[in-house]
Design a protein around this nucleic acid. Structure first.
Lengths: 204, 204, 204, 204
DNA sequence: AATGAATGAGAGTTCATTCAT
DNA sequence: TATGAATGAACTCTCATTCAT
């Protein structure tokens, strides 16, 4: 049975990453001690270093774990042939589901990545930028087709979608907001129609 | 001239709070040392304790400083006789201007308040809740007047406004986003009209 | 009384350097703990860092302290107008007295300097090389005057003098060899009657 | 074939001792980790304990390995019927060749033996003392025969020979000093023409 | 004969805090 | 009003060692 031990190690390592994510979410990177993480894992503090070279590397892995799938999911959405609204909804749903599932890691990515050394941060930032760019291009395409008003700025729009999702993601992670579907629907309603709808032309 | 010295002290104290805010924003509460704060103030580490009883108290003061005016401003807005859209715009503008001006403190409130002990956190949370409630009631009133679609949930709406403002607040604090007026206008456009506008009836 | 506090600090710092030297001599750099040093000083471990930035810096200071005066003393000897034998004796005496007085530091320089990071080591090495060079030039000059046989290699000779002095320096530091004058005399006898002596032609 | 396996084990064990010696020379005993040694051997850290009971025992074996042959070689020299100068040259040559060949172990003995517990250290010291005694007796015998001036102290002389050889041994180990024969010749020249030489009466 | 995994003790270092001055 | 000096607790990280396999 070759690869067995390697797999075992990798499993434990994944568990360590998840434990780190959970602790970092609760106490922040600097507020968390390696002892906290080890305890959550059920091992002794020093043993953590069998899985990580340093606390910082743990953060780095958590962040990567937090966005990897979520970014690649966005790539699929952007490449699909769906109409604008479906793509937008897929984005919002994917973003919020990510919070539900690998919840902590994504939040850690959002809140703590800036404590990583510049080099690692840049690599993560590239992923984040990729995500935003793809979302922007979805908006840009929709504007060309006249589906989105052309007074809208794609850059702003993407930022707004991400910000909105993160805001509700926070609530999901911390308050365990129950009805995800409801939240997705309301976010879509806001993004598509605004709160007022049938909008009036003039406002300052 | 006892009042004089008291004032002097209070001035220095305010400076200390602002210095703490600046440091906390940059490095996070747990990532900041009292030495960092003292250095930003131009005094020695031990001297900080003339102004704060503890590092934690410093955080508490920063948070309070960060939301006090901003909450009381919201009270004024809510109490005013303006129509819905004007109130909403005043809210967004106030929120984003707060980031511009006493920028750091508000961000610290958002990001670091959960490191305060439960007691202090509750008092702050009350202020935050007051803010959200007032915003909710603005929405509720607008719905009663038919200005806002009644498919909208006031709780969700308030959360969304706050989340959106915080998201752009982040960018303001960290990237020094230049055109505040533009950002306010775009946020209003989104909140009022959505990205698609003249909205279609059916969406999942 | 200006400069008082600065002096006080500097005094304590010197004491710390000497304490470090004593501990390093006994246990070696890696075998010594900062706790050991602090205890020798009569302060608590963490307080050491008021005087040193790191254990390594302590080593660096000890090494510098160990050779500085001793190198500058050699410069004086080399520059003096004394005849060869007087210079050589002054060198040996200076070297051995250095072991007696700031004994530990010099031995630490000899034994532990290679644990310093390359940069610091190079700076120290420059001093050591300066010492050897000056000793070499003393020999070279003596050879030109015919005081030293010209079959002697100045480089080897300098190395030998230094090696011999260090060997007896070791004994001085560890065994507290009592009669320094006697040791100096014997070393001179060996060295002079070797390098100068009406030596016999034949040996292998 | 039990002898076979025992031999195999003993071979590996010797390799382990040599690996330990190499690492100890480079980083010192306390600066070396068992992982370092294992890596040099090409095995994993835990596997080292198949060959040593403890890191300290490894040091002990290295030291023993470092002086054993070299001490027994001295016994042969002392027992031989050669004249004084031949014996001295054999001593110097043996000492310096030892550095060349099993170089590291001998240097480890010199530099690190004092980190051994008192008991083991005493046993090694006995060997070292034996070495020095035999060298002393060579000098004493030569003095009786009038080959060495009787102003020479045998104890000092032995110490000086050992110190000199160690000093150049250091250079051999670290700098890979190329011409061993040359170094031996120069050392002999220094020693002979010092101790025997038609020396001049007056020196301070 | 060798390894993977874990451990516990201890290392160097940082830091909030205190207090005499 | 502010500082220099010190402290003790906590932290990250290393490492000799053990042991089941």
């Amino acid at each position: 049975m070759p690869g067995r031990t390697a797999n075992k190690y990798e499993e434990h390592r994944q568990a360590a990453i998840r434990a780190a994510a959970a602790v970092f979410v609760e106490k922040g990177f600097h507020g968390s001690s390696t002892k906290d993480i080890a305890e959550k894992l059920g091992i002794k503090q020093g043993s953590l270093y069998y899985y990580f070279d340093s606390k910082e590397q743990a953060l780095s892995e958590v962040c990567l774990f937090g966005i990897r799938d979520y970014v690649s999911h966005m790539a699929e959405i952007a490449a699909s042939e769906e109409p604008f609204e479906a793509k937008l909804e897929a984005t919002v749903a994917s973003h919020l589901h990510a919070y539900r599932e690998r919840s902590e890691a994504l939040k850690v990515y959002n809140d703590e990545r800036l404590y990583l050394p510049a080099a690692k941060r840049r690599r993560l930032k590239a992923l984040g930028t990729k995500y935003r760019r793809e979302l922007e291009s979805i908006f840009a395409a929709a504007m060309e087709q006249g589906v989105v008003r052309d007074s809208v700025d794609p850059h702003f729009a993407a930022q707004a979608v991400i910000g909105l999702c993160n805001a509700f993601g926070d609530l999901i992670v911390r308050n365990r907001e129950p009805d995800l579907g409801e939240t997705i629907r309301r976010c879509m309603d806001l993004l598509i129609n605004g709160f007022v709808g049938n909008y009036k032309e003039d406002q300052t």
